[in-house]
Design a protein around this nucleic acid. Structure first.
Lengths: 255, 255
DNA sequence: AAAATAGTGTCTGTCAGACAATATGTC
DNA sequence: GACATATTGTCTGACAGACACTATTTT
């Protein structure tokens, strides 16, 4: 019980911080999309130890600068930068309200990286399927690929570090968000039918939803002005069926 | 756009982490209780610059060890340690399910501490009022005192660093938690009346609640076994009134 | 009896799950 | 017409806000 830290008299006060060891701080990204009606996660394959050859979340160090004047980049900026690198999305697209990015949780257990103490701030990102550039699956050397969540959680290929836990936390957060905010807009193409939006909900929640009841949800979104009809329709089934009305999320007043 | 970090090829791979600057990492604590029917926050007064003399959240450095074998303490362990130091609570009391502790958010904007890059992992803690040792308001030199939230948010005495923002985020989280989990148990004494529990909800939510409707909530908690009647009653008003039945949160099966 | 506090019951509106029924298209 | 899909409507139960009313105690 005689930890170094416990002997200091007071938090940040009266001490030269340079005298104390510092951890490495990284940003890990949990990038979700919906592909073929299934929730999918962007994972890389590690090329170096530890966990060489294992699947892992994309991530990288946070630029913390080197002087009190240049303290580097914000955590969210680091996450956004990594997101751009891994998905190949330009910063304009990332700013265009089509991509959701929020801080998820910070993971910092000792020993989670055997090389050194690493504290990882995990971010949850949602990318609409139409923005995925299938011709450029990875930005750099590492093989970055979309993998169905079922496959990832199946445990066939265990994830590196504590990344399996991060996925769990992220999925729980995503499920919580879906009902309580407009993040679904970041998982559908700009124009979508009720059935397509329902498919997104089903993919995230992992179980089928009653179509008529979900339409009620659509009607409420319409009434609240969250989504608006485009006026167009589209036939879904290969062998016919009534065409579905199309909607889009209201871009809002500001822009 | 030529950040150091952006030039590295890949996240954690293929690099000697020692070559890169590291931030200081601290844990900041948002410790709430309910005092005299009002939500209160434990704050210290800073004794050294920057923000000398200002009110601030208690916090401290995370022990990150010094070798790959000794990587120091977990983030939550650091938070729990600080919590014990600031409140004077023993670790047994902290483990006794009477104190709630959860990670809130990580704040790491460059410049939030003018001296150096500091990344703070904020934790939300809830301490039941009966556990507060009024005879020992502070553990060490710094003046640690409970302050009504209204006073803190009033802006009369601005908080140090970005701590005002942390308080905002924490209050929002607390309000969200109150309805969706049993954290209220950590804001009432072991035995309480319906009116006392209601007062806690009112203090957190910041507006009065309808007493009869809140009783319905109590009945549901009873039905779900979340709380149980103690069998005792207590008279509240100084000039009479019907005595109130007392309840306690069910300690649960496990223990 | 009066005052104060605790507790019950009712009415109303919102929302979700289950599911019957109707509408509109393709083959 | 058969089939597939979209859409509407209905019934029911859970829950919240407003509020009238009853119950039990002290003074």
């Amino acid at each position: 019980m005689s930890r170094r830290a416990a002997q200091r008299p007071q938090g940040l006060e009266g001490y030269d911080p340079q005298r104390y060891a510092k951890p490495s701080v990284t940003v890990d990204l949990l990038i979700f999309t919906v592909l073929a009606g299934e929730l999918a996660l962007l994972l890389i394959r590690r090329g170096v130890p530890p966990f060489k050859g294992s699947l892992a979340l994309p991530g990288g160090f946070v630029d913390v600068g080197s002087t009190p004047e240049d303290q580097g980049e914000d955590l969210e900026a680091a996450a956004r930068r990594e997101l751009g690198e891994e998905t190949g999305l330009t910063s304009e697209l990332l700013d265009a309200r089509r991509v959701h990015l929020e801080q998820l949780h910070t993971f910092g257990a000792p020993g989670r990286d055997p090389r050194m103490r690493v504290i990882s701030v995990a971010y949850l990102a949602l990318v609409p399927p139409d923005l995925i550039d299938h011709t450029r699956p990875g930005d750099d050397a590492a093989e970055a690929r979309w993998r169905p969540l079922g496959e990832v959680m199946g445990g066939v290929e265990p994830l590196a570090f504590d990344h399996a836990r991060i996925v769990e936390v992220g999925l729980a957060r995503l499920r919580d968000r879906l009902d309580r905010s407009d993040v679904a807009a970041c998982l559908v193409p700009p124009s979508f039918s009720a059935a397509e939006l329902r498919a997104v909900f089903e993919a995230v929640q992992g179980h089928p939803l009653d179509a008529p009841n979900f339409r009620r949800h659509i009607r409420r979104l319409l009434g609240d002005g969250v989504i608006v009809p485009t006026g167009q329709t589209r036939t879904a089934g290969p062998r016919g069926g009534r065409p579905a009305a199309l909607y889009r999320f209201d871009p809002g007043e500001g822009r």
